[in-house]
Write a protein that binds this DNA or RNA. Structure first.
Lengths: 337, 337
DNA sequence: TTGTATGCGTTATCAG
DNA sequence: CTGATAACGCATACAA
């Protein structure tokens, strides 16, 4: 039925090992033999059986991208993954991981323990889950983390410089005259959220702008969170003249809330986000934001993983990429009182 | 090194076949033996080698979702895929397919011909590519299409009723007093685009609203297309009082253009989309749109594929799901002249 | 209810 | 440069 390496060998009148050599581009094959084998392969339409190769090499040639939930950030990650996926020899598996579902745990556990994947890229906030960490350690499967919580040890990771990005944006807002800047914060165990808050605080301090804890609004980094926080926060006695969303999603929620309250942006209040997700350039006004280089981060993470799998020492195992401001229409100078 | 079925058999003092039976939940195993084997498995930490199983069964236990590019629609598809992926025994591979890149072709070709995947879900507009079709036919790999161009033959597909959805929305706009309704059309070879245009035309006809070819604006179904078309179209002598975007993306582009031109929505002009993508509820005003049940479509498509792979006859092989209107703030009654 | 023997299609070893 | 042969770990007829 299916044509195997034996058939090719018979057709080309050589041993299967020689066919194998040709298929795998090994050296020490006479040119004449190589051509004869190539012909045989074409004539018979031979395609190597990947399962056999995997079995004998104990490799799956699959890497897994682990994602927590399906949000806009995750979509951006997946976009890039798709984009590069066809370029290398590994297949890319996507897997969601919800620690609360035991089925999800089992699935992932099987994936790793049965060696169905050679390595993983872990996206936040999967890395905070103890079960996953235990699994990764005990199974000794290689992995690279994206923006992980814990950056001690020798585990490879790639991340954007959230602290620096938040600092830059806060500084910019201050330079535009804003003194009362609300910050939409995210989940407490999310490293990204923590760093961005610190960056915000650091800039305030540097410019001697008093920090007001009442201006740190919990948003969970999503649309609804940003919306609710803004609705609530703008009702305070002394509302801010700028809102800095720790994530684009939250900032877009804030934008929506302000529209609903008929508070004009940026005339009355400025709004900024963090991420520079595709959505941020489609709002009106365009969302000023911090470019968090997701695409490069994903690319680097996959590169490192592939290096490790190939026993190459990666150029760098721990990468922190700088963020940049992207100013659009949603931020302006502080309005006169 | 690694513990195999033999080790378990030795430990449990039985044959490997018996271990195999226990592992695969086959009948005809004495309860006592089963327990002994279970103990051995636990004691030794045995995990079946998936590659060996795959080799001997000639199955990969992997299904592939084929996507064309990385847009918001694709993100919605992936979200759902992720959401259900951990529930079944197959691993999910995502693969992009750009017919113009030969590398992309090679990758896909290898994936299918090397039987690295047992089946595929094809999303639009991948299905219009002749190379892919040829590949799918000759390789005899099972697949299910989502919203395909060609619906003849016996190839399983799942789609939303684009014609009906567009009809409903156009009707609604007419009933709100609109007579001049622009339609943002998509790529000509995109079945979705064609059907939505027909639905639009049919409603106009039904209500005896004259069709004006100048009101069909090319948008490519994306943000930029919608933006450009609107900028251009609104400059005409007799501009429309409503814009019906054949896709949410295009409609969001239109919304942006109108904001930029300071034409108030919905006071001066109504805007509607098609898709009900997550983005459509985050614009201001909220985008009135047609709910295209992507999630259900994906779910059904995967179900059908799994049925086929398990040699079960699917409940239905060709499914057309109705669309529903979702009215939000962006559409209102026609303004007085 | 249990076991034996064989094959799946490669890659790897080591001798020619 | 080439080839015979042994793994790889499991499933499955076929026996017992």
């Amino acid at each position: 039925m299916t044509v195997t390496i034996k058939d090719v060998a018979a057709y080309a009148q050589c041993s299967i090992k020689t066919v194998s050599r040709v298929v795998n581009d090994e050296s020490y094959v006479a040119e004449a033999t190589r051509l004869r084998v190539q012909d045989a392969i074409n004539a018979l339409g031979y395609v190597p059986n990947i399962s056999a190769r995997r079995l004998v090499q104990s490799k799956s040639y699959v890497i897994c991208i682990l994602l927590h939930e399906a949000g806009f950030y995750q979509s951006a990650v997946l976009s890039k993954v798709m984009d590069i996926g066809y370029q290398f020899d590994y297949d890319i598996l996507i897997q969601s991981y919800f620690p609360v579902h035991s089925r999800s745990k089992n699935k992932l556990s099987g994936l790793i323990r049965e060696r169905r994947v050679d390595g993983l890229v872990i996206t936040p906030p999967c890395d905070v889950d103890p079960f996953l960490n235990e699994l990764l350690i005990t199974s000794r499967v290689p992995y690279v983390q994206i923006t992980p919580l814990n950056r001690t040890g020798n585990i490879p990771y790639v991340t954007g410089d959230d602290y620096q990005g938040a600092y830059l944006m806060t500084e910019r807002l201050i330079l535009m005259g804003h003194w009362r800047i609300a910050f939409l914060s995210g989940p407490r165990n999310h490293r990204t959220s923590i760093d961005r808050l610190y960056g915000y605080k650091a800039a305030l301090e540097m410019y001697r702008v008093p920090f007001d804890a009442d201006l740190v609004w919990d948003s969970l980094f999503n649309f609804d969170g940003g919306y609710n926080a803004t609705k609530l926060g703008m009702a305070m006695d002394n509302p801010p003249t700028a809102i800095f969303g720790g994530s684009d999603e939250a900032a877009i929620g804030a934008l929506y809330a302000l529209q609903e309250m008929k508070i004009p942006v940026p005339q009355k209040i400025s709004v900024c986000g963090f991420g520079n997700l595709p959505q941020s350039q489609q709002t009106w006004p365009g969302l000023s934001t911090v470019d968090h280089p997701v695409e490069i981060i994903v690319e680097r993470a996959v590169e490192i993983l592939l290096d490790i799998l190939a026993n190459r020492e990666p150029a760098s195992r721990q990468i922190v990429l700088p963020c940049q401001l992207v100013m659009r229409g949603s931020a302006g100078t502080k309005p006169p009182n």
